[in-house]
Design a binder for these strands. Structure first.
Lengths: 225, 225, 225, 225
DNA sequence: CGGTAACCGAGACGGTACGTCTTGTCTTAGG
DNA sequence: CCTAAGACAAGACGTACCGTCTCGGTTACCG
């Protein structure tokens, strides 16, 4: 999808990212272009450190050292630690959650939640969660998480639920926003608070509970048949 | 309630907390006793700073200055910043969420969620959320949040739901843990990600959705009647 | 001499320098006093580095490392590199040039110049000269050199010459300032420009030349006798 | 004078300085020749910055910016800051001190010293003195100062004194080196230490003092006449 | 007259040092 | 023994220059 790439990196859209020698605005390329390998080395180093020790312990100096890069090279590309961490996490997480259409909406959602839960349990999930946590103190990070991770995913999931309404598998008067929150929020929250493992039992129970509230009453349907 | 005080402060159980001059173990109280006002001044200062700028920006020096206290006085009582912040937040939030029993379980839960949402929207909620967020990087904080805030609350809420089963207002085979997560997690998550206001519409929609999955199917009951 | 200590250190006159517990101003001594060994370790490290590589290459970080001290500890005592270097050089050079009175003024001055030349040739002289050189760019350093090193020395030397006038060994209408400059400046200048060794031949030739201009004309005296 | 130009610039003797198209070595001139205006713009910018803020504060980036030039263009011509500053100062100071022959040696020297003092008091003098000062830390600079400024000047002044010996205005056994130092060093030293203005009173007093030591005793001559 | 080699500007690059800030420990004087 | 004040070692912060490099583009020679 052409639009997918638009939101996964705010700070990499610099002059040197262009393939051509002339920018859209017509400004000619001056000076030595930025090295794209450097860019990636910094992002990788940042991601690794985030995943190892979390956002609070992330140090620009450690990033520079691990990436084999000078500090000014980092600051030339990202204005601060939040922007760097945001890009490092979200650039790596952009495309990884695709959903298929099995025909059964509840099954689709169940698969989705399993995927998200599995993702959150892994290394990339650790980095994403530390980013979400630091969003409590930093509105910019919260906004990035919301707009570059959460909203795209909710749009996709919402599409599945709307498909379910069309197929009469979901009650047409259901509050889809509430359903999305009831389905997804517990995963992130459990990862933060640590009071649950993110296993299949947990996600499937959530799906079962919420879908009992979303579907037209089966016993009623049975009784009326 | 005697047990209530047990979990809201791990680090204040020091010698000077005793009223008498002799400790339980028989050790006589030596030297100048700790000033209880100092204790409270530190906690208040910490809480204010947390609520103003979040955990990441919290500075021991700023706490000391605002409390009018030397740094060693703080370190004598709490081992580090995490412990101090934990106590400052949780000591202030301990008693504030009491639930009443209206007879209608769904109404009870609705009132609970409104209370929690209202609490999270306020200043104390901001401090609590910054603590939760920093729990992503610091297992000690996450554990404190879990054990001193989350679990007690879940116990209380679970009691309500179990009451509901006894009163046949809730399906006896319902997964109460999943229900608790589906009800509470969206509040914290929305506060972190900022994609929702925590208003009555939101909480009531959540309660309606989840209870549709929790209750014995009303249409079925109607049809069978 | 009680006044000697007044000029050899501008920045060490801090609270912690006092022996008593109360400052002159009546302010009681609060907090941990500064460690005098730290003070000395910093000055020694600075002096060594100055003497090894000169003022331009002097690095606060290198000073901190060699002294085994944190950077803020240095900045707490001296406002900048110039002040530190000034103290490091001049504190170590304060008392080292004492002059004796042999009765023969020319001999006194000759001994003085030999002493100064010998001093400038050594390690402390190297540090002093790099300080003098950096005074070209930094008026504060130049002023310190002037007031804490040059002027006291000139006062002493001037006393010798005035003694010479009293003893009729020096012409009473001689321009003593010009003589002091003609005697001392060549030593510093030769050290800077490096066009001469500072050996006895050089200093003695200077003294002979200048004193030929300072003394009552011997041939005239001879002729008139 | 053909030899004059030999010492005032070590680093400008590059290929592009040649008028002909073929170098002495026979290497044909290839590629675009260096722009001589660029050369001069860099030297001018360097000189201005030196005179404004001294050698220590001189920045290659500031030079490049003020000259409207890229940094590599500078480094292509001069190996480092010291070489650049040396050329910038000494190229501009090469020809400015010519001495005339009035017949009276003392008068000649008096005029010389006045010229030098006046020169040192001005802007070019400031640049020269900052260079001399930085020579304390950098032997290359000291050597350049010595060989391209000091020695040529001493040669010229020495010639005047030797002329004086020939004319019996100076004692034939006088130590001319010592005299040159006694005459010139105080000017540079006073400019560095700042303990004197470089006015006519000062230079004339120096000349009077030293010449009293250089000349055959006038009273004796008078008495013997 | 078209190649081509060196020039030019701009600016990215890996570093080093700057002067400041915070951490958690320590050492005082005094209550 | 506690308290307030503050010194202390350590080390990260974000900035400024260093001297080198790599670009796109220019200029003048040489074949």
């Amino acid at each position: 999808m052409a639009t997918r790439g638009m939101w996964y990196s705010n700070y990499m859209n610099n002059a040197a990212e262009n393939d051509g020698r002339v920018l859209a605005g017509g400004t000619p390329q001056r000076g030595r272009p930025r090295d794209p390998e450097t860019q990636q080395a910094i992002l990788n180093a940042t991601f690794d450190l985030l995943e190892e020790s979390g956002f609070a312990a992330l140090t620009m100096e450690a990033v520079a050292m691990r990436a084999g890069v000078g500090k000014p090279t980092i600051y030339r590309r990202w204005p601060d630690k939040a922007a760097l961490a945001t890009d490092a996490v979200l650039a790596g997480c952009a495309l990884c959650l695709a959903f298929e259409d099995t025909g059964d909406v509840q099954e689709d959602i169940r698969q989705q939640l399993r995927l998200v839960a599995n993702f959150l349990s892994g290394k990339r999930g650790a980095a994403l969660v530390t980013l979400l946590g630091s969003g409590a103190d930093c509105p910019v990070i919260a906004a990035a998480f919301r707009e570059r991770w959460l909203q795209p995913q909710r749009r996709e999931a919402r599409g599945v639920l709307e498909r379910g309404i069309a197929r009469r598998q979901v009650r047409p008067d259901a509050d889809l926003d509430a359903a999305l929150d009831a389905l997804h929020a517990p995963l992130y929250f459990a990862r933060l608070a640590g009071h649950h493992d993110l296993d299949i039992r947990f996600t499937d129970a959530l799906v079962a509970l919420v879908f009992r509230g979303l579907t037209p009453c089966p016993e009623a349907a049975l009784a009326l048949s």
